[in-house]
Amino acid sequence: MSSNFLAPAEIAEAAAKSGEDKANSSILKLLVLGFLAGAFIAMGFILDIRVTASLPEQWGSLKSLIGGAVFPIGLMFVIIAGGELLTGNMMTVPLALHKKRVKISGLIYNWVFVLIGNFLGSIFMAGLGIWSQVLSADPYKSATIALATSKATLAFGPTIASAIGCNWLVCLAVWMALGSKDIISKIFAIWFPVMAFVAIGFQHVVANMFIIPAAIWLGADISWGQAIVEWCGAFIGNAIGGWLFVGVAYYLTYLRGRSKAGATDVSEEQSTGATL
């Protein structure tokens, strides 16, 4: 009996195949889809700011929950409409690497050009948000500066730790979306993990490539040197979270020792509780 979702072992195969395809994509494709993904994540962040900036401070963490509830639209666009997001590729391409479907040079190639595309899309939306006056007046301006300052002034070690938690959740969202066969299922698979990382306040390198430049252009007391250090910490942590805690964990569980075809007895996986 067919279902509308894949078993975890099937998701692992789909993720490795996706990583292989990504590592073999053209530079133009990576840059264009990378630009779109950076812009999409920034759109989600702008929506978060516009929805929460005017909420009363007395609401406390409820503001973070509301912002987290609207932010996932960015990853929905990436997964469903199409995009190349560095943080998701920190899980899929390493899976293909461990399956020996790509070389380390293919991983570096993908990450470099997707990172460039994501950065261009992010700063484009930062400029557009200010030029359109969506972010240039209070309370949105103050909220943007406060958010960016909290990220740029976080110590390097805690930034890495926070970014690990972020991409653990983001890659689980990507993982579950890969296992979903219809759009509604993909939306819910994406929504809750991304909402969690935003509500918690974890560090996402691509989102931060939008918020920090936007704040600098709005007059925040943040230097570009601080921005680069923050992005480096977020990059390292995101790579660990996606590669180690999702990619390696599920490679060891579902893919290690399997053939390239990776045939899976789904009924056996489900009957033994391996999908839980």
Rank of each mutant, 00 (worst) to 15 (best):
I184S: 15
F188Q: 08
Q226N: 10
W131P: 00
G60N: 11
G127A: 03
D21L: 11
D138E: 15
L28Q: 09
L65N: 08
A23L: 06
H204K: 04
G121S: 05
I73E: 04
A12W: 11
V134C: 04
K260E: 14
D221K: 09
R258C: 01
T272P: 00
I240V: 15
Q203Y: 11
Q133I: 06
S18V: 14
P213K: 05
A39R: 02
A234I: 08
L86S: 11
L62N: 08
T253S: 15
G127N: 14
A220H: 06
A15L: 12
A39N: 03
L128M: 11
P56T: 08
V266C: 03
A163Q: 11
L6M: 12
G74I: 11
F119Q: 01
Y109G: 03
A37H: 03
S259D: 13
G247Y: 05
V70N: 03
F45G: 12
C171R: 09
F5G: 07
S122L: 02
V93M: 05
E20H: 07
L86P: 09
E230G: 09
Y254I: 03
T275S: 10
A177T: 13
G262K: 01
T159L: 09
A261P: 00
I49D: 07
W243E: 08
L252K: 15
K181R: 14
K181C: 00
I130H: 12
W59Y: 15
T149S: 10
K103V: 02
E10I: 00
D265Q: 01
K103L: 10
I79F: 05
Q203S: 11
A249E: 13
D138W: 13
G219R: 08
L276M: 13
G88H: 05
I46R: 00
A215Y: 09
E13S: 07
R256A: 15
M176R: 12
S267G: 01
S61Q: 11
A53N: 09
S64A: 13
T149H: 02
C171E: 11
G82P: 10
G242R: 10
G262H: 01
G44Y: 07
A207S: 03
G241D: 12
M76V: 08
T264D: 00
S142W: 03
I11H: 02
R50D: 03
G38F: 10
I123W: 07
A126P: 07
A16T: 15
G106S: 13
F188K: 09
L154H: 06
S223L: 02
S25V: 00
F124S: 14
A15H: 02
K151Q: 02
W217E: 08
I80T: 05
L218K: 03
A81N: 07
S105C: 03
V93A: 09
W191T: 08
K99Q: 14
C166Q: 00
S142T: 15
S26T: 14
D182P: 00
S25N: 08
V246D: 04
K100P: 06
E10S: 07
A53L: 11
G67K: 10
L178F: 13
A15P: 10
S64L: 12
E57N: 15
G219V: 13
G127Y: 07
I46N: 01
